[in-house]
Design a protein around this nucleic acid. Structure first.
Lengths: 163, 163
DNA sequence: TGAAAGTCAATGCACCTGCATTTAATTTCT
DNA sequence: AGAAATTAAATGCAGGTGCATTGACTTTCA
């Protein structure tokens, strides 16, 4: 006998809609607070974790799951906004070192307040603890192994949150 | 006492990653089959359902949850690709009527074969029926009411699948 | 009727993304 | 050492997206 499998669209439709709803909600909250979009959050967070030694773009690339040119341009925008500094990397003439500025840290903190509150509204307020746990577990089954990030210490204010 | 709520990020992170993984998988399958991206699928499907009478752009807008200019441009691309025809709308001089071409129908059918198979791989193969049902149910709790589409008869080949 | 308000659709502008390529430095290998 | 291969990062180009505005037509209503 052939084992029957579920209709994938019965999962995909609500998954896509939930994703869109949450993202829309959070982005709207950030925008109405005059803050940058979610795409900038993770990089600020990673740089904050890295501290004054900073990070190289290619290290960021590994952590953020962005293509090389994506990092290059994101870094460029952040630098123009004054949220990070680029400086030559001694020991490797090709590279550069990225360090968060104080302004960048302030922006990240302000974003976190809005971001976490919006997520709480969009998700936490709609699920009981047990439901959330089960949902996370089921979603985990859908994640393919090949796009996994280099693990990092958990410190409470997650990265990897961008679309 | 205050009721405790779950950590929203414990849900958001796997949700975002599952969404991305599925989308990447499906888009890659379509691309490697030389077919248009997922964004075009739903509109082709809606037009196919509408039959020879076609649809007005603003009707599409309601069904697809796209902004007005999004529909305008998507329609423009589809028209240039020969997948639909635009013709003046008698009775309303502002509007136009969109009708699927035979080529458009062929493309949609070809997309469906790839699309549904890819979804099966990305979702169906990873979940048991009961898990899928529960997952869909939990995701439903996260969908805000304000971005709901006008309901349509279910005919087996879903729209509303785009990112 | 005819002016004001509303609706349908397109578009200019700025910005973002993917792809492929380029530039420049470094590592590997003989 | 020196040529070849590899790696770091930027960029030109084509296209996609959001926002605000415009143009054209229709409806409302005094």
């Amino acid at each position: 006998m052939t084992r029957t499998t579920p209709d994938p669209f019965a999962v995909w439709l609500p998954l896509a809609r939930a994703h869109k709803a949450i993202l829309t909600h959070v982005e709207a909250a950030l925008k109405s607070a005059g803050l940058p979009g979610l795409d900038r959050y993770d990089i600020l967070w990673e740089l904050e974790q890295a501290g004054p030694d900073g990070l190289r773009p290619f290290e960021l690339q590994g952590r953020l799951l962005l293509p090389q040119y994506g990092v290059s341009r994101l870094v460029d925008r952040l630098a123009r906004a004054g949220h990070l500094t680029r400086s030559a990397c001694d020991g490797d003439g090709r590279g550069q070192v990225l360090v968060l500025t104080p302004e960048g840290a302030e922006v990240r903190a302000a974003m976190w307040a809005v971001y976490s509150a919006a997520m709480q509204q969009a998700i936490g307020d709609h699920l009981a603890k047990g439901e959330a746990r089960r949902l996370a577990e089921l979603l985990g089954k859908l994640i393919r192994d090949d796009d996994t990030v280099t693990p990092r210490q958990d410190t409470g204010q997650p990265g990897q949150s961008a679309p």
